[in-house]
């Protein structure tokens, strides 16, 4: 009993130390300017895609490319899967991550399609906790402008966004709830979730 308690603490301390070491080189390295520049590039690619005249699966593929390039997809996917991620096999995690990236591109690509003729403009940024929030405004013809913000971090080793908020609604939180509910409905079966995710969105 004593022994297992001791082991657990040691493990905890070890893990915490590892986490710190892993995070240390990048800690606070991300400046507001860098974050804003990253999102500026992402937004110009999104604007080009929205107004490219592409539709359906070719547009979704373009969005998936942008998503993979500018977002920390492995972290978002892992976070959406929640605690079950840690008992998943490597293959399950990578299958899920791929299915998730494509599902996100279809689901949000459909919405972006309605933004044709519009554009997103970066307006500023501020430090929040250990990351940067880059704010932008989406201007769509015939609609009131709405606020979009990107949460950017370099904790993955490079600067990527890990959340996108539209009028304050977090895509990450929304997908955590959604993927959690999908997984519950499938009795926690990740393989079933992956195969259904390939059809969803």
């Amino acid at each position: 009993m004593m022994n297992s308690d001791f082991t657990r603490r040691k493990m905890l301390a070890g893990t915490a130390a590892l986490a710190l070491v892993a995070a240390a080189p990048q800690a606070f390295a991300l400046s507001a300017g860098q974050a804003q520049q990253l999102i500026g590039q992402a937004v110009s690619e999104i604007n080009r895609a929205i107004n490219s005249g592409q539709s359906g699966s070719s547009l979704y593929r373009t969005f998936e490319g942008i998503f993979r390039k500018y977002a920390d997809v492995p972290t978002i996917a892992r976070s959406a899967l929640g605690p079950p991620a840690r008992s998943a096999s490597k293959k399950q995690l990578s299958d899920f991550t791929n299915a998730f990236a494509a599902y996100m591109s279809r689901k949000y690509g459909k919405r972006f399609r309605d933004f044709a003729g519009g554009k997103v403009e970066v307006t500023g940024s501020r430090a929040v906790k250990s990351f940067q929030e880059v704010s932008a405004v989406a201007k769509i013809p015939g609609q009131s402008p709405f606020a979009v913000s990107f949460m950017v971090s370099d904790r993955s080793g490079s600067s990527k966004f890990f959340d996108l908020l539209i009028e304050g609604i977090s895509l990450l939180k929304s997908e955590r709830a959604e993927i959690g509910a999908m997984l519950d409905k499938r009795g926690g079966n990740i393989d079933a979730l992956v195969s259904d995710l390939n059809k969803a969105g």
Binding site: T15, A16, A19, A23, R78, S135, S153, I169, L172, K173
Partner: peptide, 29 residues
């Protein structure tokens, strides 16, 4: 989320979900 955003005019720092922090928490759990 949209109501809180409308009332405060911005996303609140406390409200933001940090997946990096939480990934480690999940490891502890």
């Amino acid at each position: 989320e949209s109501r809180r955003f409308a009332l405060s005019g911005q996303t609140s720092a406390e409200n933001a979900f940090d997946p990096y922090e939480n990934l480690y928490e999940e490891v502890y759990e």
